[in-house]
Nucleic acid binder design. Sequence first.
DNA 1: TCTCTATATGTAACCGTTTACACATAATTT
DNA 2: AAATTATGTGTAAACGGTTACATATAGAGA
Lengths: 329, 329
Amino acid sequence: MATIKDVAQKSGVSVATVSRVLNEKGYVHEETRAKVVQAIQQLNYSPNEVARSLFKRESRLVGLLLPDITNPFFPELARGVEDELQKQGFRLLFGNSDEDPVKEQAYIHTFLQNQVVGLISATQASKELNDKPPALPTVLLDRTHDGSYTVYADGKEGGRIAARELIKRGSHKVTVLKGPSHIQPVQDRFQGAMEVLGNSNVDFHVIHTTSFTYEEAEQRAKELFSCYATTDGIIASNDITAAAVLHEALRIGKSIPEEVQIIGFDDIPLSRLLFPSLSTIRQPAYEMGSQAAQLLLKLIKKEQVTAQHIQLPVTFVERNTTRKVKEHG
Amino acid sequence: MATIKDVAQKSGVSVATVSRVLNEKGYVHEETRAKVVQAIQQLNYSPNEVARSLFKRESRLVGLLLPDITNPFFPELARGVEDELQKQGFRLLFGNSDEDPVKEQAYIHTFLQNQVVGLISATQASKELNDKPPALPTVLLDRTHDGSYTVYADGKEGGRIAARELIKRGSHKVTVLKGPSHIQPVQDRFQGAMEVLGNSNVDFHVIHTTSFTYEEAEQRAKELFSCYATTDGIIASNDITAAAVLHEALRIGKSIPEEVQIIGFDDIPLSRLLFPSLSTIRQPAYEMGSQAAQLLLKLIKKEQVTAQHIQLPVTFVERNTTRKVKEHG
DNA sequence: TCTCTATATGTAACCGTTTACACATAATTT
DNA sequence: AAATTATGTGTAAACGGTTACATATAGAGA
């Protein structure tokens, strides 16, 4: 690999001058610039980012911390983040935390050691961040937290919508599957659904799940249909869970959506592939990632940011696990 | 952030000594070490990876290049890679290429600028790699290439198995959906299926797809059932395509697997969630990622590697889009 | 003409590590 | 006792960039 010294030598100038043409900063005579540019091309030189980072005390890397890329909601987020960052010349240092605080800290620590310019985290990554006074620019994704910059979808409204749609479409005995309660957005969804359900006159009950694994969802689905055989509407904590419920419902011969309606949450790519395709509350995952990246970029560049919290709207995606509502009922 | 100098000062020794205790290299008196360790703890010091990388001329970062993390096959791969690397203290620099050579080169270039120790690529990343004589340790994942280290699944055998299983289960008019032909493993699958189909006495025909998007798959599925209404067995190019076909088949009222059998490829998490759940040829994606990481680690450490190419077996996952084969036919 | 400023370039310090080398002392050999 | 060898530590030069500062020339304004 050629270094800046090689370029300086070849073009007969000092390294300072080369650096100036590289960074288009300070005065450089046009002829000199031409010579330098030529030398750069001949040597196929490109600057060493590591040396640059060392001096500047920051890299062009951004840390991205996710719970688990294997959960189909997160690739969309990640893609949104990446595409936006990539456009502006930043790269991603990536880690899965599995919601494990130890892993999480370990990743943040190495991110810091690698002098990332910023961090986007879809985990509870709170501690390390708020401790350090010369804090790393950070955006929380799909999480809320007063003191931080955040980008998230309106989970509470999502929960409300889900409940309303189910009621509107004639469900009378609703089951709500509540996800792991330590995850903030999950709580919100649940609260929203409770709010509407509580103000309605339908029966409802709640089944609690402790993870987002398909295995557990399968288990809960079986319970659901054996304990509450007359349930005719299900609000799942996310689409994976909804898929498990749907699968089990079909397996035991329920007709969907005639006997049982199901609404999921997230609108992961899988949802439309199910049969019947899954009605769900859509979170604009890609958009969320993209917004988070844009916000972070502003923080990094110390540009004016108008909002500390960006809440994106959720929408009801009507597919075929809910009944059609007749016009002018 | 405290530096090694701060630690040296606080513990009353030189930076060289601190470096020695940090790296457990060279002689350090036990008492001195204790003093240094204490200073490190008091200052909450941890070494700057960037400075270290600069001097060593290599970082502890590994580049991971994927076509598109949004395609559900790749998160599993990525997770396999990450988990293995993470254990050994390496971090991931991550990029999606969208199979676009320009993006691909751009990523490899910045990986190089950041002095990654190695590269794992699930794209055609050939050029830049083989050009450079002081080559970056590289492992190709899910791709084959004679001159490189590779980890991949036995696609050809997968194709054969798919065809055999379909025939064994009584399909007489098989349709093969052939994926984008510039992607090597896709070709292999196709070749394998052709081999078995060609030596059998079933009718078959081929429909060509140019992408792995669900939208195109949907389109092709419609074509399939309108042009070849009597098809009773379908080999899809991957599980996404298979899902689209299944969806369309159900929509037009075919009974699965009685009238039509379907076999996918990959066994992505979605596959078991479909209804009927999808029979498919499983690639051990996580394992592939993990193996690739292990191989790369060996290359990096210049350990003896026994095999340049690691081919992992595929397996038939029997679910419910294929008929049961009766014992003792 | 003299000063001031804009243009152009080089020198050297610095970013935070690692390590070759020098040096000193203690423990072993011979 | 002399010669090795092992142990322990510091000095300073890298690594490959950036930039403050010094210096020099040319044109502009007084």
